[in-house]
Amino acid sequence: MTKDNELTLSKAFDELEKITAEFEGGDIDLEKGVPKFKRGLELAKFLKEKLSKIENEIEEIKSNFL
């Protein structure tokens, strides 16, 4: 499991996909499933927060050609 302070959109999405795949695989029981579901909620929260950003930041580099 990824530490939250290193979490990126990609890592969060991949981990969530992995958890979903485990559920899809059918090889999951209630004891394992509940903590995984909780982790999934954390990841989803992170993804939603990140994806709620609307603007992109643009930094222009001073090139030699302009």
Binding site: L51, I54, E55, N56, E57, E60, I61, S63, F65
Partner: peptide, 10 residues
Amino acid sequence: MGGIKIFFYP
């Protein structure tokens, strides 16, 4: 998508 940092090289 938002939150992307774009470095623009003209």
